[in-house]
Design a protein around this nucleic acid. Structure first.
Lengths: 144, 144
DNA sequence: CGTTAATTTGTATTTATTACAAACAAGTTT
DNA sequence: AAACTTGTTTGTAATAAATACAAATTAACG
């Protein structure tokens, strides 16, 4: 199969050993149009690799993320957070310091709603637009 | 204190009983500029309410979210997800069905980077802009 | 005050994830 | 191709975040 070949190529390019588990995980990940959780992947990949261990799923996914072959959706240090501000706003987030701050920008909001008014997404009705601005807080000095 | 009064007002407007725990949680949540986790809140609020139970934190936060007094940051059904696509893209997310899909939009990306090129955020250097478009997929299951 | 229903507490459980050592297998060397 | 070396997988156990639930407590009302 072409797909399998492509995966094998990707794996060896990343300097990883070609194991049935890794091939199956990557294959499944590519096949599943949605964004599966580790659990969902475990269930799915287990169909291909019977005695698969859940740990392998986590190991494999971590390795893939490390090598930049896949991405983790949502922030990296993933625990639920709470926000007292209920007005519409966005977030500045630094993955290194795991710090998150609010960002308000009316001009941006207007630009975005005008944009999506014009450009409809087929099959999806937007109710809220949330931006996560990844980056870092210039904590050492003020560059102003 | 004025702040406490405001909180008490908010609580009774929401039809909730005024308890020291709730006041302290809301107070702390407003004070902490960042977005604390339940654990962080537990630690912080425990300083005010000594024998506080962790369960109370979860209960209280859930109640506040229900009443729309606070917001949960990140998606509601919060488990880690993985994505095989590493190119820059955004997400369409429906909280009801807990379904997430990719969204690519070059025009949007260009507009956004032009925007943030012009409008710098003081104290923060952006490295990546991620949009989460909340809404619902028009799945043809009901009377459509 | 006294009553009642909401709230908090504490304990036990569940779920997602990580740690770790032993078993194993991929890729290389000979 | 057999042996070797190292990376990978497995299984078990541990940790962390969150939830369920019954009992104890307390706020808000008259």
């Amino acid at each position: 199969m072409e797909i399998t070949q492509g995966i094998i190529k990707k794996l060896s390019e990343a300097g990883l050993k070609i194991t049935p588990q890794r091939v199956a995980v990557m294959q499944t990940l590519c096949k599943l149009r949605m964004h599966p959780t580790a659990e969902e992947l475990f269930a799915e990949v287990s169909k291909i690799i019977p005695g698969l261990s859940a740990t392998t799923i986590y190991n494999t996914l971590d390795t893939f993320v490390e090598k930049g072959m896949i991405k983790r959706v949502k922030t990296d240090a993933d625990v639920m957070r709470y926000d007292a501000i209920t007005e519409h706003h966005h977030h500045l987030y630094c993955a290194v310091s795991d710090r998150m701050e609010d960002y308000f920008d009316n001009e941006l909001d207007e630009m975005l709603s005008a944009y999506f008014e014009r450009k409809q997404i087929k099959g999806f009705r937007i109710s809220d637009i949330r931006l996560q601005l990844m980056g870092d807080f210039n904590e050492r000095k003020q560059t102003q």
